[in-house]
């Protein structure tokens, strides 16, 4: 369903960034060569250390960043051939998202539904379903500012899938969640898989991948070094042990 071919992305570093990174290089290679495929009805986990290029890869999948080289193909077509159509069929959630505190979940849902050209009936039906599922219905008219952290995270999640997307791209989906919300999110991702959605998540949490992912792409220093089923990658070990074995084989830096 979604095919990623040899993605590359670099960023120009400002003098301040060069100073912080203690480098004289003006260019930072965030993603050097990443390829993989994600199919319907599966959860693909992108695993890597901080700064490996996971978030940049997901942002290219979400069409926020344009690859310098390589392609993202959706149902066989380059996503930039009809970006609007592609965007209607994806949902993207970043852990950096903070909702506007003034609005209510109800208002935000309706607003995003309009951006997706959804009809009134479609919006109401979808809203009712998702709000009930995540227990937001009782807080639908409460301002985001007055919601608990867990509830805010659930609202963020719901907002990112207003349009019932076929491809769901989540950057660190359980990052900072309380244990109850984390369970709800994990169960929901599994349910979406059952519905035939294509789910791509990035994380550095081994247990999450072990729990929900069907296949794994390991990214080290901007390169996809391994793409296989979870079972094959683990090869009888824990995912953590497998990761560090591969990481060291590929010359990954263990000194942080």
């Amino acid at each position: 369903m979604l095919e990623v071919r040899n993605l590359k992305k670099t960023f120009k570093l400002s003098k301040k960034q060069q100073k912080i990174s203690k480098t004289k290089d003006k260019i930072k290679v965030a993603v050097a060569d990443v390829s993989f495929q994600a199919e319907r009805g599966e959860i693909l986990g992108i695993l890597g250390a901080n700064g490996a290029g996971k978030t940049t890869t997901l942002r290219m999948l979400a069409s926020i960043l344009k690859p310098e080289a390589g392609q993202v193909l959706f149902e066989g077509k380059d996503i930039y051939q009809d970006l609007s159509a592609y965007r209607k069929r994806i949902g993207f959630l970043t852990s950096e998202l903070k909702l506007e505190e003034f609005f209510t979940p109800n208002y935000l849902f309706d607003f995003f539904a309009k951006l997706y050209d959804m009809s009134q009936e479609e919006t109401q039906e979808r809203k009712q379903k998702l709000f009930e599922k995540f227990g937001i219905d009782q807080f639908a008219e409460v301002k985001v500012a007055d919601l608990s952290t867990g509830m805010k995270q659930k609202v963020s999640l719901v907002i990112s899938i207003v349009n019932d997307p076929d491809v769901i791209i989540f950057d660190e989906p359980t990052n900072g969640l309380d244990i109850i919300t984390e369970k709800i999110v994990v169960d929901f991702l599994l349910e979406l898989r059952e519905q035939g959605k294509c789910i791509i998540i990035s994380t550095h949490i081994f247990s999450l991948i072990e729990k929900i992912c069907d296949r794994v792409v390991m990214i080290i220093d901007g390169k996809a070094v391994k793409e296989d089923s979870l079972e094959n990658i683990m090869a009888g070990q824990s995912l953590e042990d497998s990761f560090f074995t591969i990481y060291q084989e590929m010359g990954g830096n263990m000194n942080g």
């Binding site: 965007r87 998202l97 951006l115 990112s160």
Partner: peptide
């Protein structure tokens, strides 16, 4: 807040 990213990912 990062909300503009969420808006720009939509077809707008």
């Amino acid at each position: 807040r990062g909300t503009i990213t969420t808006i720009l990912v939509t077809p707008i």
